[in-house]
Amino acid sequence: MGRGLGRDLGLTRTPREGPGCAALRPLSHQISTTMSSTKRVSTRRRVARHVAARPWLRLSGVLGPPLSWLLLAYIGALVALLITSLHQEVTVGLITRRITAPGLDNFRRLIETPVYRSVTVRTVFAAVAVTVIDLALALPVAFYMAKVASVGRRRALVILVTMPLWAGYLVKTYAWSTLLNPESGFLREFVGATPGYGIGGSIVTLAYLWLPYMILPIYAGLDRLPDSLLEASTDLGGRAGRTFRSIVLPLLVPSIVAGSIFTFSLTLGDFYVNRIYGNKTQFIGNTIFSNFSANLPFAAAFSIVPILIMVAYLLLARGAGALEEL
């Protein structure tokens, strides 16, 4: 019974195999299989010969599945977001929802409503502030790690810099929440002042959270910078400041851009820090979150905004020639 049923369903093994399987199998394996079964000049062998003669087929066999996954999951999601954002939800009667014909109403509302403009400006301001703070902290640390510290100390520092990444995002945010508490937090008790839970507190926390993402690319960039260049600059009479401005900084721009893409985009997308800090500061992410269940198309439209800002940022960076070495 089992065999009969199996054949009906195409479950039993037949000597035939699809071309996809042959193409995906490693070459060495294909060769050994072909050699051990020379008697059967099988379909498999013909397929193998067919594929071997056509490099594009091999390539598409190997790259096809991951690429189509990328297209579906990444680009597909973005397209779905865009399509959703062009629709409109209408409440009819009690709670019924109807999605009306595509239009730009959501984007018009985003531009015309003052509160959404100020949320966007505030978020971009925070992203810039976080990036600047991280850059100011990362440059000296990375320079020390790459050019000054001994090998042992350098290793220890790399571990120390990456260590915060081992702990969860939430754990670190809750920890900062206790540090920043305006009544009895560590900063109030021992430093005497705290940015509290407003936008200042959010910026400080996010700058802490994303700092490793700025240090590591700059460290890698400085590591590639030959010491001889610094020595040559000194030999030619360049002081530390001049050497930094004329030699180090221009060569570091790609690394700084790489780091800033992380700090900038991660801040643009963040909403949880504000949520934990009591929602006194609204970022784009918070507004998306609050509209998500009540008005999905509008939330989708607002999600497009950080994407557009990032595209503009990358175009700007490319215009400045910063992406050529990435």
């Binding site: 809750y174 929440s177 839970y197 949520r275 934990i276 800090y277 009591g278 929602n279 006194k280």
Partner: peptide
Amino acid sequence: GEYWSDYVQ
């Protein structure tokens, strides 16, 4: 001072 949604916080 805060708009709460996380009751633990």
